[in-house]
């Protein structure tokens, strides 16, 4: 039953991503000045928005872990699994952003990379969460979970700066498409639809991977816990 549900969900998500691809590449009209290269936008922006979602999941789960680690260790373990999965999926989304950005920048700006506020804070965001994942590898046990949760609180401080970077400063990175002022927003309905489908498809894909990661991590915690119990019992 569980396997059937998983298989059906995966199929549905893949179909949705295929539909999103179709919308972005074939249905949405070609942009007037940039041409076809603008279609990267349908991947770059949804991934950037969703990377925030997963880093927020990591942050909230880390706070809950710190809150529960003494009173309610069982729930704290669940929160830790969510924090780990959130950071992992967030890093994947952020990587997609950092790869698609230069691919678009090269033809449109003529350069792969520039050190403006938006690009720099995005790279810092990626570096911080990679260091978070490294910390989790380098330390062990409950101590590692606490230290990682503390690091997550620090890492989260970059997100408001990243969000505000092209709102506060005049950056080479384009001005915000949504929530940037009276002139922002997508005017063409086909473009908006392609964008919306891709946000939905990538969100479903990310949440599916997140769910699988949480499930696997919970199983791993169960195995580790049983092994620790067995060692204590002297078997």
């Amino acid at each position: 039953m569980k396997k059937l549900f998983f298989a059906l969900t995966t199929l549905a998500v893949l179909a949705l991503m295929g539909w999103g691809y179709y919308q972005a590449i074939y249905v949405a009209p070609t942009e007037a000045t940039m041409g076809d290269v603008q279609r990267i936008f349908y991947y770059h922006v949804p991934n950037a928005m969703l990377s925030y979602l997963f880093f927020v999941i990591n942050f909230v789960a880390s706070l809950l872990f710190l809150l529960w680690r003494r009173e309610d260790p069982g729930r704290a373990q669940a929160a830790d699994a969510w924090a780990l999965a959130g950071a992992e999926v967030g890093v994947v989304f952020c990587t997609v952003v950092l790869i698609t950005g230069p691919l678009w920048g090269r033809p449109v700006w003529g350069i792969w990379w520039t050190w403006d506020a938006r690009l720099t804070t995005t790279l810092v965001l990626w570096l911080i969460y990679v260091s978070y994942l490294l910390t989790r590898r380098f330390a062990a046990g409950a101590q590692m979970q606490t230290l990682a949760a503390v690091l997550s609180v620090f890492g989260f401080f970059d997100i408001p700066f990243n969000y505000l970077a092209n709102r506060l400063w005049r950056t080479q990175h384009p001005a915000p498409v949504f929530g940037g002022g009276p002139d922002s927003g997508i005017k063409d309905p086909h473009m908006l639809a392609a964008f919306g489908w891709n946000v939905l498809a990538w969100a479903m894909w990310g949440l599916l991977v997140l769910g699988v990661r949480v499930y696997v991590e919970r199983r791993q915690q169960g195995i580790d816990g049983a092994a620790a119990q067995a060692a204590l019992a002297g078997d």
Partner: peptide, 14 residues
């Protein structure tokens, strides 16, 4: 010894 620069450098970057 290895972990400190790995955590500190990204956070200190700004």
């Amino acid at each position: 010894e290895l972990l400190l620069p790995l955590i500190l450098f990204p956070i200190f970057l700004p």
